[in-house]
Amino acid sequence: MNWFDKLKKLIHIEINSPIININIIKDSDNSTIGKYDYDETKEKLNLYLDKLDDKTKEQLNPIFQEYLGEGNKLLENETSELLYSLYRYNKETKNRPILNFFKPIIPIEDFRALEASLYLRESFIKKEDIRKLKRDIKDRFGNRGNNISNLCTAGYFEEFLMPLHNYSRDQFTKLYELIVLNAVLAIFVHKQMPLEEITSQIKKKLEISKRYGIKFIHIHGIGKSNIAKIKNCIAYEKKFFDFFEKNNYEKEDIIIVELLLK
C-alpha cells in the first residue's frame, strides 16, 4: 500500500475520481461537516486538519515521510505556485541573452539579484502582484538588490549597461558600481517617498553623475498617486527643473521623466 492509499484509508476518503492535489487547510468558518471536501473540476481535495482527532494527526507523519521519501515536496500553497511558475519560466529563453551577457562581468550576488529581477519583471509585465517578490530580493540582497531590481525592471541593463560595456569596458567598470550602488541613473518614486525627497535625490545623484560625464537622470513612477506626486514635484520646484530639458513618457499607469542637463 503506498502513501496515497494509506492516507485515503486513514481519513476514510471515498473518492474514486482523480486527485491531483491534496490541500491541508483549516475550516476557518466552521462550515464543513466532514473531514474533507473534493472539487471535481480542479481534482483537488481539501483536508481539514482541525477536523481530525489527535490520534489521526499522529499517523500523518509517517505518511508524509513516505510521500517525501519518493522525492516529492510538501509545499505551502503560494510557495508551490511560485515554484511551478519558475519551472515554466525556466523553459523560456527570452532572458537568457541578458543573463549570459552579464554573468561573466558582474559580481555573482549581483547576477543572482538580476536573475531574480528578470523574473520579477516578467511577472510585472503580466500585471501580477510583485510586492512580495520585490521584498524577497531586498531581503536577500539589501538596497543594492533593490536598486538592481528597479534598474532591471526599467530596462537599464539592456538599454544602458549592455551598450556601455560594448562601447567601453573601462567606462563600464568605472560606472557600474556607481550605478548599482547609488542608482545614479534614476529615481524610482514610491508611495512612502515625500515630495521633497525627489528633488533631494536628483541633486545628490546628479552631483555624483556629473563627475563621470553623465548628464541625465530619469524619474520613474508607477501608479496614479506616484505619477501625480512626480508632476506635483516638477510644478512645485519649477525653478529647479527649468535647468533641465524635460522629456515625458506616460502610458497607462507608468511615467518616466527624462531630465537632461542643458
Binding site: 496515497f4 487547510i25 508524509f64 510521500y67 505551502e76
Partner: peptide, 27 residues
C-alpha cells in the same frame, strides 16, 4: 474513472496550518 496513483498527486498546505504541519513533522 481510473484512480490516480500517488506518483501524480501532490500535497500542499495553507498558510493557516503552517505551525500544525511543523508540529506533525516533529518541529
Amino acid at each position: 474513472m481510473v484512480e490516480r496513483n500517488s506518483i501524480n498527486t501532490n500535497i500542499t498546505f495553507d498558510k493557516s496550518v503552517k505551525k500544525d504541519i511543523l508540529a506533525l513533522l516533529g518541529k
